[in-house]
Computed example of a mutant assay.
Amino acid sequence: MYKDLLFIEGTHQIKSRKTTKKYISALLEMQFLIYNARTGYYLIKAFDKIRSMQHFKTRLAFPIGYQNYNKLDAVTGAVLYGYLHKDFWRKVKQKKSVQIKGCTYYFPKVNFNYKTQLAPVSVYGLKQIFNIPIATASRLKSAAKSEHYLKVKTNYEKISSDKAFIMNKVDETDNLRYKNGKYYLQLIDTVCPLFYFIKRKSLE
């Protein structure tokens, strides 16, 4: 047991045994871990048991292995933006078209694979839906992009200097950009997952 803790702490660069115990206590409290008093070992509950305990409604899952288990920002960003990408195209398919900030998106009926298409997903959307600060939502997106889980396209609309002057006048400059002597309005980033969700089995 002692050697196992040392291995975990070394692998994850945990400097304090107090920190390790805090993590273990938190997982025990959430009932994700079970302590076997006879062997002195902790057992991790199967994921489907955790799904049942937490009443997870969705079957969508993101594969996590040794190569990415410690890249939580990238994985979290991939899951959140990937899910909202899927949800966006689901709504477009139901309504046939969706308009967002002057842009209209259509769902063609023939040979259209939404999984390879960009979709507008705003950091403000993540804030509203998941109660995530905008700075955190932006960081998660950047992390997912860096790990090649997410394709991100930054979009701009060219505007007149008169409109830019008015925006400066009323202090609405958050999305105003000045490049090469011209003014642009930064639009919602469009994203596309570079991975596929897998589906877990249905819970009985």
Rank of each mutant, 00 (worst) to 15 (best):
M53V: 04
I134D: 15
Y2F: 12
P133V: 07
N36W: 03
H12P: 01
S138W: 12
T19C: 04
T76L: 13
K21W: 10
K57H: 05
Q31P: 02
N168E: 12
L185C: 05
L126I: 14
C192R: 07
N168W: 07
V191K: 07
M167G: 00
L43V: 01
A144P: 04
F107A: 06
D87T: 12
A78L: 06
L27M: 11
Q128S: 13
V75Q: 09
E29I: 01
N113Q: 11
Y106P: 00
H148I: 03
P63H: 08
K45L: 06
Y81G: 09
K109D: 13
N36S: 08
I166M: 11
K71W: 01
L43M: 01
S122F: 08
K153H: 03
Y105W: 10
R51V: 03
D73C: 05
K101S: 14
Q67K: 02
P108W: 03
G10W: 06
L185Y: 10
D87A: 15
N111E: 13
N68E: 09
Q117N: 06
F7E: 14
T136Q: 11
K18M: 12
G10C: 06
S142F: 03
K96E: 04
W89M: 09
Y156S: 04
L118C: 06
N113E: 14
Q128I: 10
G102F: 09
K158T: 10
C192Q: 08
N131W: 05
M1I: 10
L140D: 08
A119L: 04
I50T: 09
A26K: 09
Y178C: 01
T19F: 05
L28Q: 04
V110M: 05
Y114Q: 10
I129R: 14
Y114S: 13
S146W: 06
L33E: 01
S52T: 08
K3D: 15
N36P: 02
P108M: 07
G125A: 05
K22M: 14
Y41C: 09
S142L: 09
K3N: 13
G77M: 05
L27P: 11
N131P: 03
K151W: 02
L187W: 00
E204A: 10
I64L: 07
T104E: 05
S161Y: 06
F56H: 06
I198C: 03
A26D: 14
L187H: 02
T173D: 01
I14P: 04
A46E: 15
F112T: 05
R139T: 08
S202G: 02
I64K: 07
Y114T: 04
Q67D: 07
I198N: 01
T190M: 02
K91Q: 12
H55N: 06
P120F: 06
K45H: 10
K179L: 09
K109W: 05
L185S: 11
E9R: 15
R17V: 14
T116W: 01
K3E: 14
S142V: 09
V191N: 09
G40E: 02
M53W: 04
S25C: 01
M167E: 07
R17W: 08
K169S: 10
G125C: 00
K49V: 09
T136I: 05
N155W: 00
K141P: 14
I100E: 03
M1D: 13
I132L: 15
Y2T: 09
L80M: 13
K199C: 00
A144C: 08
Y114E: 15
D4Q: 11
K86D: 12
D73A: 13
L126N: 13
